[in-house]
Design a protein around this nucleic acid. Sequence first.
DNA 1: CACACCTGTAACTATAATGGTTACAGGATC
DNA 2: GATCCTGTAACCATTATAGTTACAGGTGTG
Lengths: 154, 154
Amino acid sequence: MAISSRFSVAVHIISLLEISKPERLTSEFIASSVNTNSVVVRRIMGMLNKAGIINTSPGVAGAMISRPIAQITLLDVYLAVEVDHQDHLFSIHDKANPNCLVGKNIQHTLDQRFTQAQRAMENELANVTLEQIVTDLLIQDSSISSTTTTINKG
Amino acid sequence: MAISSRFSVAVHIISLLEISKPERLTSEFIASSVNTNSVVVRRIMGMLNKAGIINTSPGVAGAMISRPIAQITLLDVYLAVEVDHQDHLFSIHDKANPNCLVGKNIQHTLDQRFTQAQRAMENELANVTLEQIVTDLLIQDSSISSTTTTINKG
DNA sequence: CACACCTGTAACTATAATGGTTACAGGATC
DNA sequence: GATCCTGTAACCATTATAGTTACAGGTGTG
């Protein structure tokens, strides 16, 4: 299965928070931009909060981004919301027959190669900051149809 | 969710076929090495067959590896068995609000970055051949406990 | 030819992750 | 106190995975 859309939603949320600063956005409002349920937004914001990327407070709308977005990478966000398989992107069948040459050694052999591939992917994510993402969003918007776009329509 | 273990099982199967050459292994035998059901093995071998990596024939045990394993990469195997998300490893929420600056442009922005990260991972897989994997398996085995290992114990 | 063996595949199951939804306790603010 | 909001539990539908049973049909040998 693919990497869940929590990742892209999380990037969406942070971008929206940044662009809308210092306005305090409710989860309901953010949800209308993402086009999902507000609980889904609060769930993901909870993960980002736990990871120290944003700061939320019970009862109070909005969230503060904890540091300049030039210092937040896609990898940070990825690790925050894909907690489940942050250790191993690839899964390896784990009960292979130890009496077989292949079965005995396949796990260790593949783990090395898979880890290397995963690292390569993560390095790419680490090289992109949320600042670059927001810049991309603004550039694309201005080059396409800036006149018809607003932040506040949800 | 993580990348399915079909990938690691597929590598296991090809390695076993190679090391056991020219013996013809039944899916039942292979399954006992992987420690799974023979249908699971036949299913994955079917995908490898369809991808042109191995050649199987109905009714006849065993499979021929279609080309020297130095010419088969982990990426080839990956693409063969992870057909589902070979296009996009990352999923992006796809119904974001087009009336919002972020919602309108997030999909294209992230797609570019995600594709780059995915390519980096795939490049690593493309740089490893099944020959290297088999070599790794043999080296590890000889350095650990070659005397107690057999290929034929399933 | 008959039989034993094997593959390919359909069908069903259990399990788990995901995303959406309702509900509600409790914090914050006016 | 009334209102709004967050955090979170609970539940559901959907989907992917992996295992299992069953069987049709190909293969090859006695």
